[in-house]
Every structure is written in C-alpha cells, then in structure tokens.
Design a protein around this nucleic acid. Sequence first.
DNA 1: TTCATTCCTAACCGATCGGTTATCTAACTT
DNA 2: AAGTTAGATAACCGATCGGTTAGGAATGAA
Lengths: 115, 115
Amino acid sequence: MQPDQLSLTLSAIADPTRRAILMRLMDGEASVKELAAPFEMSIPAICKHLRVLEGAGLISRGRSAQFRPCRLEAQPLREAVGWIEEFSKFWDTSLNRLDGLLERLQSADATARKN
Amino acid sequence: MQPDQLSLTLSAIADPTRRAILMRLMDGEASVKELAAPFEMSIPAICKHLRVLEGAGLISRGRSAQFRPCRLEAQPLREAVGWIEEFSKFWDTSLNRLDGLLERLQSADATARKN
DNA sequence: TTCATTCCTAACCGATCGGTTATCTAACTT
DNA sequence: AAGTTAGATAACCGATCGGTTAGGAATGAA
C-alpha cells in the first residue's frame, strides 16, 4: 500500500535530522555536503534523508556542476498544518471544555457506582 | 536515544489508522472495541496503535469496568502545529519570492554557461 | 460457580528504517 | 591525462514497525 501524501509529509518531518535539514534550507539553497556538515553522519545517510524529503515533495533539487543543490518546497506542509489545526481548534473550542465537563460527570458517576 | 516530544507526536500522527482514531475521538470518548470497529484489523493491532498515541500524550485512558475508554489529549499537537507553521510562514513570506528570484537567476546563469 | 466480554501481553513474522562501508559516476582542476 | 571533489548507489546490519495468533487477567452477567 502506497501511503497518502499527508502520511508521507508527516513521517518525513517526524525525524529530527530531516527537520534540521529543512530548517537549514530556510536560509537558502545548500549542497549535500553543506547540509551534511552539522551532523556526525556519513554523506550517504544524508542522501537517504534527502531522498525521503524529496519523495515527500518537501525539497527539490537542481544541478550546478557536480553539485545538486537542495531547496525548500514548503507546499506539502500546508496540508499537514491544515490537518493538525483541526485538533488545535478542538483544543480551544468550548466543545473541549464541554467534553471535560462530561468526562468529570462520567467519572463522578463511575465512582459513585463503584462505591 | 529516546526521541524528543515533537518527533513522538509527528510519527504518531504519521500513520493514517492513528489519525482516524484521533478523528473518531473528537466525537468523544470511546472504548477500544468501538475504536477498532471501523478497521479490518485485530484488536491487539489497535491496542498497539493506542499505546503509541498514549506514549505521545495524544490520548489518555480511563477505567470503567472492563472498559478502558480513550479520550483525546490535543495538547502535544500545539507544539507540532507551531513547528510546521514556521514553514507555512516561510512559504508566504517575501523571502520565498526572493529565493525564487535568486534561483531563476542562477538557473539562467547555468544555462548561459552550458551553451 | 461458570461463562462472556473487554482488553492486554507475549511471541512471532516480514517489511521498513536509519545507519554503515565500499564502490561508482560525473564534473571540475591541474 | 591524472587527480580531486560531490554525490549516488548497492549491499549489508541491527532496530523498529505494523500486523498476526494464542493465551491470560479483570470485570460483569447468568
């Protein structure tokens, strides 16, 4: 089963190394070697991370001599932020406080039944 | 290495089954069996997903007779949405358009050099 | 007491993940 | 032409993931 775009995006940014790479790319394009520099990790390992990011559409790559510079493509993150915000909304709505109330009533009820 | 909270949260919601469970919990508490019902998946599989969600702090669990109802805890998602929004911002800023300009200049330059 | 229901745990399985080393290609440099 | 640099690929490794089946514990019901 090929995963949906949202799952691709989220699992791509679930890794701290890949998030650090993305943050680095906010300062502008960078070569693979430049991206690898801050990490105690081999170049092939970074290449793999870049492939994951590229597969999720979070970066794109150019060509300039023997360099293949990476640049940020933030578009897929918009879908992700959209999904997550559904739940942030939930957290802030009165629905949440209502749920809290219901829950407290239920647990009080359960306690009453138990004793 | 134990992963940071943000990585925990993101990898928890990177799975479509777990996202569906969270969405179901927006309608209120539910038992494990209720949560499992929509899926063609064994109960233990759902239990594992619930453990992941609980480990990420995205759900909490009560006790009521032989049931262990789950309820949504959306708080960790706030950190996640905060991180992702950094990049949504990036996408909308003039910095992005500036990058696009620089890139176009560079690729024009590369093309010129190539010919 | 016995049975049913709910849920968890353990053991296992194949696939994927995140890293390594070794090797290769492509392009620049001398 | 020979050497260097940037990067990709392949093969491998241990750990984790996402699922399974089997079996056990806790609670409620007959």
